[in-house]
Design a binder for these strands. Structure first.
Length: 578
DNA sequence: GCCGTTTTCGGCCCGACTGTTTTCAGTCG
C-alpha cells in the first residue's frame, strides 16, 4: 500500500464517520492523519518498520495501529465495518458543492439515495420535494452542483490558473473606488494545483465592487453576492469552469484578512491556537484581546505574526509543515531574482520551436548569465532525438553561437535517455565532450519501485551525469509519478554530487515540493529548469521558484543561482571523483 | 482520536452567506 492509499482510507473513514454524525474532533483527527501521510516524502512502510509512526504529527497509538494493520493485511476492520453502514458510493455525494454530511445523511437514510445518478433521478422525479430542508432553491443548487462536478476535472494546474487570476486582479484593480487588490489562497501559496481563486480588495463601496465583479466578462454563473463577498464561476477552457471568490475588507483589517484568506486552513488553525494561548482571538478582521476586544494587530500581515512572536512567514511555507519551529524560515530563501540561468532546454535541433540564438537572446533579456542546450538523445525518436553525429554537429553549432553572442554563456549539453537497464543512450566518450549532462527517463515508467530506483541510481553513478531530469516523470492531473525510493536516490545524488531537477514546467513541477524538501534535507543540490521548448517557456521559471520556496530551498541549494565558474567546477568535480 | 509552557483530562478555530426548518442549521473556506 502506498502513502496515498493509506491516506485515502483515513479520508474515507472521516467521511463515513461524518455522515454518521460522530464527534467532529474525532473525525478531524482522521483527516489530520490522512494529511500527514499524504505529505510524507518517504515511504510510510519504512517509518512503520522503524516503529516510528507515533512520532508523526497527529498520529497517536490508535492511528499507528491502524496504519500497521493496513500495511500488514491491506485491510482495515474499522473501514469494513463502516462501509457496511455507509456505502462507498454515498461518499461521492459529499463532493457536490453545497452538500455536506448532514444533507447526505438525510438523503441516504430517508430516501436510500446512494449515488450521483440516483440523486439526479430522484430530483427529476420530484421524489425529494417533501423532504425537510430541501426547498426549490436547494434542489436547483444540487442539480447545478452535480452538473459542475461531472464537468470539472478537479483541481486546476497552477500554470492554468495563474493568468486568469492575474487578469481578474488587474481588472478589479482598475475599477472605480478600488484601493488595493491582492491574490490570496492556494495560488498565493504557490500550490501545484488550485481549487478556486481568492481575491481580496479594499474599496470605498464594497457592494458596488462585488456587483461589478459578478458582471465581468467570462462569468458564467453567480454563486453568491453579498456586501463583503462575491463568488462566481468563470470559464477556464472549453466546458470547464473555475470558481473565483472576491472579498472586500476594510483597510484597517487588510493584513489580518490577507493572512486569513491566504491560509492554509491548517496553518491558520495553528496560528489561532497560538493566539488563544495568549488570551487573544484571531479572525479575518484582527488579532484582538478576547476579554477587552482591544485590537492588537490587523493592518499588516507581518504585525499579526510579530504579535504572536513569529517572523513573517512566506505564503509558500504556510502549510503547517513545521514553519512555526524556530529557524524554520531560511533568511536566504530562494527568490526569482536569484536565478541566473537555465540548464535544460530544447531548440529546433530536436523538438523545440526556437533556435539556439533565439533561446540565448530571450534568456539574456531576462538578465540570465548562462543557458545550456540539452537536446533529446536518439532513443527519443518521437522528440527527434539526436544520434551521435547530429550531437557532434550541435556541439559545434553551440560553440559557434557562444562565440558570436556576448553577455551570456551558452553551454552544449544533452538530455540523454536513461535506458531500461540504467545505461545511457550515448557512450561516455561522447558525453565527455559536453559541458553539462541531463539524464532522464522517458519510457517504461510503469515498472516496480526497485527497477525504477536501480535504473535512476545507475544514471546518478555515471561520472558524466550532472542532473537527473524530471525524476518521477509525473504529469500533473494526467500521469502518475514513477514509484521511486526517493530517499535512496537523494542519498546517492548527494554522495556523487549529482543534482536533481525541479522541472518548472507547469505540467510537471517534478520534483514536487515535499520531495525537493527531502532532497534539501539530505544535502542534494537542486536545479530548477523550465525544460523550455520555446522562448515563452522561460516564464514558467516562476512556478519552479514557488515550488522551491515551498520546499524551503535556500539560494545556495539551487545550482542555477551559482556563477558560471561554480557550475563548471561542479561538473569537473564529479568527473574527477571517479 | 490527539495532545500537553493551564500536561493524563478536557479541551480541540471562526465568521459569512444561503435557504428556509421564521430564528437558525448547514456549508464553506
Amino acid at each position: 500500500m502506498t502513502n496515498a492509499d493509506i491516506a485515502r482510507v483515513f479520508k474515507e473513514i472521516a467521511d463515513m464517520l461524518e455522515i454518521k454524525g460522530e464527534d467532529a474532533f474525532r473525525i478531524n483527527s482522521y483527516r489530520r492523519v490522512a494529511r500527514t501521510v499524504d505529505d510524507l516524502a518517504t515511504d510510510i512502510a519504512d517509518i512503520a518498520a522503524r516503529d516510528e509512526l507515533s512520532n508523526l504529527p497527529g498520529v497517536g497509538k490508535a492511528s499507528a495501529a491502524k496504519i500497521q494493520e493496513l500495511l500488514g493485511t491491506g485491510w482495515l476492520k474499522l473501514r469494513e465495518e463502516l462501509a457496511r453502514q455507509v456505502p462507498e458510493s454515498v461518499l461521492e455525494l459529499l463532493r457536490i458543492p453545497g452538500m455536506g454530511p448532514k444533507k447526505v445523511a438525510l438523503l441516504w437514510q430517508q430516501r436510500r439515495i446512494d449515488s450521483l445518478d440516483s440523486l439526479k433521478e430522484a430530483i427529476a422525479a420530484g421524489g425529494l420535494d417533501d423532504l425537510k430542508g430541501f426547498g426549490k432553491k436547494t434542489l436547483a443548487q444540487i442539480s447545478d452542483g452535480i452538473e459542475f462536478l461531472q464537468r470539472s476535472v478537479g483541481r486546476t494546474r497552477l500554470g492554468n490558473a495563474w493568468p486568469i487570476a492575474a487578469e481578474f486582479h488587474d481588472t478589479i484593480a482598475a475599477m472605480k473606488g478600488v484601493k488595493r487588490v491582492e491574490q490570496a489562497g492556494s495560488l498565493r501559496r504557490g500550490r501545484e494545483t488550485v481549487g478556486d481563486l481568492d481575491l481580496l480588495c479594499h474599496a470605498d463601496d464594497g457592494e458596488s465592487v462585488i456587483k461589478a465583479f459578478t458582471q465581468l466578462p467570462g462569468v458564467t454563473k453567480i454563486l453568491a453576492a453579498g456586501g463583503t463577498k462575491g463568488s462566481v464561476l468563470v470559464e477556464l477552457s472549453r466546458g470547464r469552469e473555475i470558481q473565483i471568490d472576491l472579498r472586500v475588507v476594510p483597510e484597517e483589517s487588510f493584513g489580518a484578512a490577507w493572512q486569513y484568506f491566504t491560509g492554509s486552513k491548517e496553518h491558520n488553525i495553528r496560528l489561532r491556537e497560538r493566539a488563544l494561548k495568549r488570551g487573544w482571538s484571531l479572525n479575518e478582521y484582527s488579532l484582538s484581546d478576547s476579554k477587552t476586544g482591544k485590537v492588537i494587530a490587523s493592518r499588516e500581515e507581518a504585525d499579526v505574526y510579530k504579535a504572536l512572536d513569529l517572523p513573517w512567514i512566506p505564503p509558500e511555507l504556510r502549510e503547517d509543515r513545521g514553519e512555526f519551529e524556530p529557524d524554520a524560515i531560511p533568511p536566504d530563501l530562494l527568490t526569482d531574482g536569484d536565478i541566473h540561468g537555465d540548464l535544460h532546454m530544447h531548440t529546433t535541433a530536436s523538438d523545440g520551436r526556437n533556435t539556439i540564438e533565439e533561446m540565448a537572446g530571450a534568456a539574456k533579456s531576462l538578465g540570465w548569465k548562462y543557458i545550456c542546450i540539452t537536446e533529446h538523445s536518439r532513443s527519443s525518436t518521437i522528440a527527434n532525438g539526436l544520434d551521435p553525429m547530429r550531437l557532434k554537429q550541435l556541439i559545434a553549432d553551440v560553440r559557434e553561437t557562444d562565440r558570436k553572442i556576448n553577455g551570456i554563456k551558452i553551454w552544449a549539453g544533452t538530455e540523454v535517455d536513461i535506458l531500461a537497464d540504467g545505461s545511457l543512450d550515448y557512450a561516455d566518450d561522447l558525453l565527455e565532450k559536453l559541458d553539462f549532462v541531463v539524464a532522464s527517463i522517458h519510457a517504461g515508467l510503469g515498472k516496480d519501485i526497485k527497477t525504477n530506483t536501480e535504473r535512476t541510481l545507475a544514471a546518478i553513478r555515471n561520472p558524466y551525469v550532472n542532473l537527473i531530469g524530471h525524476p518521477t516523470g509525473r504529469m500533473i492531473n494526467s500521469r502518475r509519478p514513477m514509484s521511486l525510493d526517493m530517499e535512496a536516490i537523494c542519498r546517492e545524488a548527494a554522495k556523487t554530487r549529482t543534482a536533481l531537477e525541479l522541472n518548472a514546467s507547469m505540467y510537471r513541477l517534478d520534483l514536487k515540493d515535499q520531495h525537493a524538501r527531502l532532497a534539501r534535507d539530505l544535502g542534494v543540490t537542486i536545479a530548477i529548469c523550465c525544460d523550455a521548448h520555446g522562448v515563452e517557456s522561460f516564464a514558467q521559471m516562476h512556478y519552479g521558484v514557488l515550488t522551491a520556496r515551498r520546499a524551503a530551498l535556500r539560494k545556495a541549494d539551487v545550482l542555477n543561482t551559482w556563477t558560471t565558474k561554480q557550475i563548471e567546477a561542479f561538473v569537473q568535480a564529479k568527473r574527477e571523483r571517479r
